[in-house]
């Protein structure tokens, strides 16, 4: 009798603990989002999207930083995702079982979780030092390197999900793999690949460390890719650690902008993925 009661109590205790753990996790998320929203909204003003980052003690906005982040993220994706998609295609179509593919998959997973500051150091050494100055293009390259593993992984997984029947039918009609891939596989895996792109964008738009030594920062409006360019994460880094109220408000507002963007992208990716799985499930 005693033993049974003990087991029941033990069961109850551990289940309670796990419920508490879940609530702590949710509470943290709620706390962070709440802080972000309350401070971020306080920092929001009509100037946010129309003025540049101000000198300390003055009002201003985040326009140059938002533009810079948008440009470098876009460039990063433009450079990185084709490489990721093509490489993922290779792994899915041509290199199913070769040693090279195993190695590449492995390396890719390592790159996926590697500290982004290392990538920043790498791009500093081979681009910034060679060019002699910081630049937006260096920043975009660092972001591209971070985007490749995400797109590669998703592309390979999505291509592998395409029913083998479709590939075989295409081959039976006499199509080379390139034709099959372009005309059959890519359209079939379309939403999956787009999910990968969204995840990559979400990943790189929040990165600070790689931009610290590549794009640096710029307090003015600049569209020159060959010069330092303002960007939201580094601006937030600088402004949050300053004692100026206006700057701190802008930092919170910028943080809110980044988080909302990334959350929207992540949720969209999820929704897309769910739609994709529903399609598969219904036997399309």
């Amino acid at each position: 009798m005693n033993r049974r009661l003990f087991r029941k109590v033990k069961n109850g205790v551990f289940l309670l603990l796990s419920m508490i753990a879940t609530m702590i996790g949710l509470a943290c998320l709620a706390a962070i989002l709440w802080t972000l929203i309350s401070h971020g909204f306080a920092g929001m003003s009509s100037h946010l999207f129309t003025q540049m980052t101000p000198p300390p003690g003055s009002q201003g906005g985040l326009l140059n930083a938002i533009y810079g982040s948008a440009v470098m993220t876009l460039l990063g994706i433009l450079i990185g995702s084709p490489i990721g998609v093509l490489a993922g295609t290779y792994l899915a179509e041509y290199g199913r079982n070769s040693k090279l593919s195993t190695a590449i998959r492995f390396i890719n997973d390592v790159l996926l979780s590697a500290p982004s500051i290392i990538i920043g150091l790498f791009v500093y050494e081979i681009v910034v030092v060679r060019m002699g100055h910081f630049s937006a293009i260096a920043g975009a390259l660092a972001l591209a390197i971070l985007a490749i593993p995400v797109t590669l992984r998703t592309t390979e997984d999505m291509l592998n999900l395409v029913p083998i029947g479709m590939k075989d039918s295409s081959a039976a009609l006499g199509a080379y793999p390139w034709r099959t891939t372009l005309s059959v596989l890519y359209p079939a895996a379309r939403s999956g690949i787009v999910t990968g792109l969204l995840l990559a964008i979400a990943r790189i738009s929040g990165e600070t460390a790689p931009l610290l030594f590549t794009a640096l920062n710029n307090q003015f409006w600049s569209t020159n890719l060959n010069a330092p360019m303002a960007n939201l994460p580094v601006v937030i880094f600088q402004f949050a650690l300053s004692p100026y109220k206006e700057w701190q408000d802008l930092a919170w507002a910028g943080a809110l902008i980044i988080t909302v963007t990334i959350l929207v992208l992540s949720i969209s990716a999820r929704v897309l993925l769910a739609m994709l799985q529903n399609e598969r499930g219904s036997g399309r």
Binding site: P82, L86, Y90, F122, W178
Partner: peptide, 28 residues
């Protein structure tokens, strides 16, 4: 010809991934 081009394009992209990691290690 298209097949060869496509295949080498995807292969180069894949090898590039290896090279990036190697490059990082070497430059560090």
């Amino acid at each position: 010809i298209y097949e060869r081009i496509f295949r080498s394009a995807t292969l180069s992209a894949a090898v590039l991934v290896l090279l990036i990691l190697g490059g990082v290690a070497v430059s560090l």
